[in-house]
Design a protein around this nucleic acid. Structure first.
Lengths: 201, 201, 201, 201
DNA sequence: TATGAATGAGACTTCATTCAT
DNA sequence: AATGAATGAAGTCTCATTCAT
């Protein structure tokens, strides 16, 4: 049959990605059937293969794009920041923004690594590590400057990431706290974590 | 065809649970085929149904048992602690112990909720919430005693849980830090998080 | 793997129905395997599910269509008949025609009710009862007109139906009696059944 | 384990037969699982094979016993009858008695022939034919005596059997008609069927 | 581009049956 | 006798994928 009026390949592709993210978020990659994915965007399953080579590749590309976009947004956000303390605060802000605004992408970016082929896995976790290295670099720059004491930057950066990422598990846009308030709260928690306690502790 | 010498139902059931936890941990519930699970414990796939009613129920029971055991162990661990500060430190210790020693159980207990039926989901998340309430109760008791300042206990308890749970994502028993060192590190991070910053910050 | 030249959905569907009727007639619904049914029409078992949602629904739809067609044909056959005696003779003729020409459909329509889900059962037996009511209405109209004496129309209509339906158990198109002869014989039996015996009985 | 107190092999076997008849009656031989059959009589499926060699043989023996008992009862019932008209009335009485009192046995004896192996089929249909021959012999004796006119005894005997057997499809012990009334009604219908109509027909 | 028809692989599950205990 | 443990076969069904139209 001919293409329906008003449909464009690029639009359809975007719709497929969006629907897939939602389905994978809710039930996982394995539980997402291409038949229902096709139905989500008004296609039959056969037509889907005009857009995606196969399910596995599609997942890999999807996650790759998500991580690439994360990194790109991150770099844009950090462009004008140089001071370590400012950078740390900006990192927290960025991370919380992204992890609340793009909750589903973030979630599947974390969870569906296990569904990737080894090659895909290597490609995508490289991006994740790069993101983590950004945080660690900030921590180390701050330490060198004597801003805070970080005994074990490897652990602390992982701890901060876990702390921040946890937001996406429970955040609701219509919850009690605005995103700004939330950011302040987490910024202050992170700051305190890096602070030396007063006593001999 | 018949019962082989030495076969015992209870042992087999334990082996099935263990193998399932491992497979689900690595590739997810949907990706675990009963055929391979059976092979893991030296059975054919049909024999598995002498032990489990069906795959879905099996998952539900598995997660339920994990959460029940977590709560039981937790209560035993906290039996003799009463002071809020001690309780908080004991909580951190317990959580890190369990989340490093039983990493796989913990991981699937967090991740496979989405594969549960609505009834199973309700049952199991009830246990999760109970665990979280324990932490929150400690925080509130400490606040009432003036031990630390917690503006938003709901958020802070979730933050602490995320922080601690994150350990299971990267912890390796043969890593640089002993479990005891790790516990101390996280205990100090949690303490600082609850500490009021010195300056007007 | 793809669509072979000349494949047509409607033809295939018809072939599936026909093959299913034959298999169910010979060995019963439970004993009909979808694999062999598929093979009967030159498909693999998976392809069958392009045509039927599942085995149970398929049975229900099959029986429903059979009963619907029976009723439709019946109404067409009886359109121009009004006198009760003519109607009764037409009923016998129609019933024997249908039950010899469509022996297999009739048989499974009677026998596989027990394999239906409760909902399907209700739907399909409703049609059966409607058919039976037609006969009973004829009997009662004849009685009111004094054409024959029917003490217990409920029982007698069931008796006549059983009598006539029995034909399909042994009728062979190549048997001694033509269908026309058979019809005459049964018409006369039914007439006599409704006749008052001459003597004091 | 040892035999439970009070159980006897013969009792158990009877219980199995009874449960099987009921299950086959309701859902058919194929749909009867040995697991549930075992449960019906308080056994596990493995223990069933102390009583039955296998499912197929069991069915064959069950039907064979039913038909054998039918014939035995029949011969007892007809022992003192010699006049054809009395014999016909006695046949009707016997058939209706058996087909209402032992509805389930009768039903599966008719329906599950298709589930038999060829050897079993031959064995059991031989008994059915023998029963039918009894009726046909009565009809022919009556005809030779000029009691009634039967143009086609082969068809008429089948017709009478169908007529009578139909009772078991709807008869309920708590229905409006007593079994005696029912018998009278059917006896009179059969008589009329064999009666020559008065007019030129 | 989209669809309909088909496929092979593989999923979960049930079943009758066997046999050591 | 009865049970529990196991098996192989088979069943229904879903799925990703292919390709003629």
């Amino acid at each position: 049959m001919a293409r329906p009026v008003g449909a464009s390949g690029a639009d359809t592709m975007r719709a497929i990605r969006k629907a897939a993210i939602h389905r994978i978020y809710r039930h996982g990659y394995e539980a997402m059937s291409l038949r229902t994915l096709a139905a989500d965007v008004g296609l039959r399953v056969g037509s889907l293969h005009n857009y995606i080579p196969n399910k596995q590749e599609f997942l890999g590309n999807l996650l790759d794009e998500i991580m690439a976009e994360l990194l790109l947004d991150f770099e844009a956000h950090m462009a004008d920041v140089s001071e370590p303390r400012d950078a740390l605060m900006a990192f927290v802000e960025f991370h919380i923004d992204w992890h609340t605004a793009r909750k589903e992408e973030v979630f599947i970016g974390n969870m569906e690594l296990r569904s990737l082929s080894p090659e895909q896995y290597a490609r995508i976790t490289a991006r994740r590590k790069q993101y983590e290295r950004h945080l660690r670099a900030i921590l180390e720059r701050g330490r060198r400057k004597g801003l805070w004491r970080v005994e074990n930057p490897a652990v602390v950066s992982k701890a901060i990431l876990a702390l921040l990422t946890g937001v996406s598990n429970w955040y609701r846009p219509d919850g009690k706290l605005s995103r700004k308030q939330l950011t302040r709260l987490y910024q202050s928690m992170v700051e305190r974590m890096l602070h030396e306690p007063e006593g001999p502790g």
